[in-house]
Amino acid sequence: MVRRGVESTVDCTSYGNPRPVVDWYSRSNLEVPYGSSFIWQEVYFQSAYNTTNRLHLNVTQAQQGGTYECRIRINSAGPKQIHQVNIKVAPYIELGKSEVIAKMSQMYQVDCVAHGFPTPSAVWKRNGTNINHTSSIHIYTSLINATIHSQTVRLYLAIHNVVDSGVYVCEANNGDSTIAQRSLLVKVQANISLSEKAKASQLSDNFEIKCESFGFPTPTTIWLRYGNPVSSLSANHIYQLTTTNGEYTSTSLLNINLKSQGDAGDYVCQASNFKTFSTEATFSLKLGLSFLYSTLPSPFSQSQTVTCAFGGFPPPSVQWSINGQTIESSTKTPTTITNRRTQNKIESTLKVSSSIIFGPNSIVKCWVVDSSAERKSPKLVINGGELNTFANQGK
Rank of each mutant, 00 (worst) to 15 (best):
Q64I: 00
I159F: 07
H83G: 06
E374W: 03
K395D: 11
L185A: 09
T220N: 13
L287H: 05
M1N: 10
Q41E: 15
V43I: 15
T305E: 14
N17M: 04
I101Q: 10
Y226V: 12
H56K: 14
T244N: 11
N392V: 11
S234Y: 03
G175A: 09
K125D: 01
A102R: 07
Q41L: 07
Y267C: 06
C211Q: 03
A198E: 15
K286L: 12
G262C: 01
Y49A: 02
L253C: 01
H149R: 01
I356F: 08
W24D: 14
V6H: 09
V186I: 13
S150T: 07
P118F: 03
E212Y: 00
N388L: 10
F274L: 14
N161W: 12
C308Q: 07
Y248D: 00
Y108V: 00
T178L: 08
G175F: 05
K187H: 14
L258N: 04
C308R: 04
S329E: 08
S201Y: 00
Q151T: 15
W320T: 01
A198V: 11
Y168C: 10
S47D: 14
A158E: 05
S234Q: 11
E196R: 13
P79I: 00
V6N: 04
S355L: 02
V123D: 07
N361D: 13
F117P: 01
S372E: 12
V162C: 09
Q106R: 10
P118N: 05
T60M: 12
P18N: 10
S272I: 00
V368M: 09
P118L: 02
L292W: 02
V268H: 01
S183Q: 15
T305I: 12
E347K: 15
I357G: 06
W24K: 10
A146V: 11
R225S: 14
L258S: 03
H115W: 14
V230Y: 04
E196T: 08
S165F: 07
Q81P: 00
S355C: 02
L185G: 02
G324V: 01
D205G: 09
